[in-house]
Design a protein around this nucleic acid. Structure first.
Ligand code: MN
Ligand code: MN
Ligand code: ZN
Ligand code: ZN
Lengths: 143, 143
DNA sequence: TTGCAAATGAGAAACATTATCATTTGTATG
DNA sequence: CATACAAATGATAATGTTTCTCATTTGCAA
């Protein structure tokens, strides 16, 4: 729960404001956490931070464009965001409990580049989501 | 443009109706075509078929559940559907023109299974979308 | 302090999708 | 073929998510 410094935002070309600091702080206090705009909004209100939903949407998009956050389009229609941890990774989403687990597989990554190159495409990015069920006896992430 | 037989729907557990036959016919007349509900609705109207948007949404979901169509969640917030061709494949989406190209890579598929199994997940399905630009001199799919 | 562009927040609007319900249609039966 | 009735349809309302508008507030530099 270390508060982000205003310089973090300045470096990203965004001026330091209360809502932006609160939102960034929320993501930094929960590593590997994937949250929708609604999730972020409710969490901020629960923290006693007074913020508007429109601001949450605006700031999430700005943070995405600034490279501070990464946006995901899982099944379900709503965007979810996570802190940009620098290292690209893909996701396994548990269909029982909604838990999201991260992974990186070098072989998959390189095959993707190869496939795109062979077909004459310059890759911007990609999304790989595996939808699955935990096999653990009692799913530890019930929602 | 071969009209689908009512048996196709009966076999899928759906009774044969005019809107269902028209929608299935549209997908069968355009192999490898990825369409949103709005796309389908407009195309039917253009064909002179009188149909309601609500019916299009309902039928697309029913066809997905019956295994006749496959749903995709590309970037952009709306679902797109394609005919279930029996063979699973993944997609490269051109960011310039929206053209969708299909591919299958056995190495990627097997690595995915391995990754999920190692982490204790039973895979339901997955989605892999590569977002890229055509490198061809003049993108042949301008929208 | 003051000034002002940039950011915010409340609410309206836009967009995609689903729900409601009166009417129509497919099909099984006589 | 006529009838009956559950299932399907379509107009419209409602919902859920995201963006837009604009009056007010705020961060920051002079
Ligand atoms: Mn992640
Ligand atoms: Mn396809
Ligand atoms: Zn789980
Ligand atoms: Zn293209």
């Amino acid at each position: 729960m270390d508060k982000p410094k205003p310089e973090h935002l300045k470096n990203a070309g965004l001026k330091s404001t209360v809502p932006r600091l609160n939102i960034l702080s929320l993501f930094e206090s929960r590593q590997e956490c994937h949250m929708s705009a609604e999730d972020v909004y409710k969490q901020l209100l629960a923290n006693g931070d007074d913020v508007g939903l429109a601001t949450v949407y605006r700031v999430l998009t700005q943070f995405e464009q600034a490279g501070l956050l990464v946006r995901h389009n899982f099944e379900g229609g709503k965007s979810v965001f996570e802190l940009n941890q620098g290292k690209h990774h893909d996701h396994i989403v548990c269909l029982q409990c909604g838990h999201v687990e991260e992974f990186y597989d070098a072989a998959i990554e390189s095959r993707q580049k190869k496939v795109a190159a062979e077909r004459g495409f310059a890759v911007h990015d990609h999304s790989l989501y595996i939808y699955a069920d935990c096999l653990k006896k009692n799913c530890p992430h019930k929602r």
